[in-house]
Amino acid sequence: MARTKEFDPDAALRSALELFWRRGYEATSMADLVEHLGIGRASLYATFGNKRDLYLKALDRYGELQDPSLLRELSQPGPALPAVRTVVRRFAAEAAADGRRESGCFVTNTAAELAPHDSAVARRVERNWEYLETLLHSALVRAQQQGELPEERDPQALARMLLVLLQGVRVVGKASTDPARVRDAAEQALRLLD
């Protein structure tokens, strides 16, 4: 007769995500996970596989938790450019906020730490970035169609520039003690939308 699990796998996955997010992949050992999750090593392996498997599951979970306000903001009817500006400013404010500075963005952290040498991780990071880029692109196309964005501007190139800016803001925001650095960069980038 199979034993029933004595823990909630979903809660354990959320807890693992939180630990990986705070410490990173390399700095988190299986012993750290066992202690943090309060689950025996054998149960952890049986439920999630090895540390990398658990990390990939945590990264997938993070992707499932995409900020629904982002989709709402960038796809609402009416003027689109103010929504794009609001999103860029929000990313800059979050990146500079004391509570967020320490942890940064899980996808951005993963991109810097693991994506260059792990193709499965790189695909997940790329999927996250494609989602954000698509939302920005759609909003910029609408802005152009509504006469808010000059015809000579390339919405796809602008969306890509904003994606790179937002990821850079997250990296600099995590490491910098000067919040003006990310705010100023965001405001300069937004001038390209005039």
Rank of each mutant, 00 (worst) to 15 (best):
R90A: 11
G63M: 09
G38K: 11
M30V: 15
P82T: 10
F20K: 10
D32G: 10
A83Y: 02
E73C: 06
E64N: 13
E35K: 15
H36E: 13
K51I: 01
A27W: 05
Y62K: 12
S75V: 03
W21S: 15
L81P: 05
G49P: 07
G38N: 11
G38A: 09
L33E: 13
A46V: 02
L70T: 15
S75W: 00
V84E: 09
S43H: 13
N50V: 01
P79C: 02
V87M: 02
Q66V: 13
N50I: 00
E35M: 11
R52Y: 08
Q66E: 14
T47A: 13
T86I: 00
T47P: 04
Y45N: 02
L70W: 09
Q66P: 00
V87E: 04
A80L: 06
A80V: 05
P77F: 07
F48P: 08
F48E: 06
F48D: 07
K51N: 03
R52G: 02
D53K: 00
E26K: 14
R72T: 14
S29T: 15
S29D: 08
R22C: 03
L54Y: 04
E73K: 04
P68K: 08
S29G: 11
R85W: 02
A31F: 01
L65P: 00
L37D: 12
N50S: 07
Y25T: 05
D67N: 15
Y45I: 09
K51F: 01
L65N: 12
L56H: 11
F20E: 09
T28I: 04
A46R: 14
A31I: 06
K51A: 01
K51P: 05
K51D: 01
L44N: 11
A83C: 07
S29I: 06
P79I: 03
L54W: 02
E35D: 15
R22V: 08
P77A: 12
D60M: 02
L71Y: 11
V84D: 10
R23N: 13
G38T: 13
L81G: 07
V88C: 08
A31S: 14
P77G: 06
S29C: 11
Q76I: 00
D67I: 02
V34S: 06
K57M: 07
P77Y: 09
T28M: 03
G78V: 07
P79N: 10
R72P: 00
L54V: 08
P82G: 10
V34M: 07
P77E: 12
Y55Q: 01
R89G: 06
G49R: 10
L65S: 13
V84C: 09
Y62G: 02
A80S: 15
P68L: 12
A80Y: 05
D60T: 14
T47H: 11
D53V: 00
L56V: 04
P77I: 07
Q76A: 15
G63N: 14
V88S: 05
L33P: 14
T86W: 02
S75L: 11
V84G: 09
A58H: 01
A42G: 13
I39R: 03
Y55L: 13
